[in-house]
Simulated assay, not measured.
Amino acid sequence: MALQLPDADGDCRTCEFCDAHVTPEFRRSYGTADRRALRCPECDSWARIMRGSAAGKDVDHPDPQKHDGRNGGVELRGPKVTDGGLSR
């Protein structure tokens, strides 16, 4: 039988940076000690999250929100071309 761990406060179910939904498992694994996610995969790269950015640590890896061309930033997730690039 699995043990249900207590969850953080009900209003902490979203990323504090981009307001995207984050699971309790993500917050428990990568978030702060009180299980808040300061960044998430929608607004940050996994390379930074694995180094502690979701917990608020300063990370020496470029932030995709400040550096164009880095994967993972919200601004990089624009509309997709669905017509094969034929419209202009």
Rank of each mutant, 00 (worst) to 15 (best):
R39K: 07
S87D: 12
S87Y: 03
L86N: 13
R88Y: 01
V74F: 01
C43T: 02
W46T: 02
E25Q: 13
D19T: 15
R35C: 13
D19K: 08
R51L: 13
M1Q: 13
R51W: 00
R70M: 10
C43L: 02
L5R: 07
G85F: 14
V81R: 12
F26I: 01
A37T: 01
P24F: 00
P62G: 04
D19L: 06
C18S: 07
D58V: 13
A55W: 00
H67F: 07
G56L: 05
F17T: 15
P62T: 00
A55N: 08
T14W: 10
R39F: 03
R77D: 15
T23C: 09
R88H: 05
C43F: 04
T32E: 04
D7N: 07
K66E: 15
R27L: 05
P62D: 06
V81F: 09
L76V: 03
F17M: 12
A20P: 13
R36Q: 14
P6Q: 11
L86K: 14
G31V: 11
T82M: 06
A55K: 07
D34Y: 10
D68H: 07
G31W: 02
S53V: 09
D34M: 09
E75V: 03
C12H: 10
P24I: 00
E25I: 14
F17I: 05
V59C: 15
A55D: 11
D63C: 10
C40V: 11
T82R: 08
A8G: 14
P6E: 15
A2M: 07
R35T: 11
L38T: 06
S87F: 06
L86Y: 01
M1E: 13
V22K: 07
H21M: 09
D63S: 08
Y30W: 14
P62K: 02
F26K: 02
A2R: 09
A47F: 10
A37Y: 02
D9A: 14
H21K: 09
H61A: 13
P41S: 03
T82D: 06
D68W: 05
L86V: 14
G72A: 03
R88T: 00
G69M: 02
E16L: 11
L5E: 10
R51G: 02
L3Q: 11
V81L: 11
D60R: 07
S53P: 00
P24G: 05
H61L: 15
K57N: 10
S45K: 03
R28S: 13
P6T: 01
H61D: 15
D19Q: 12
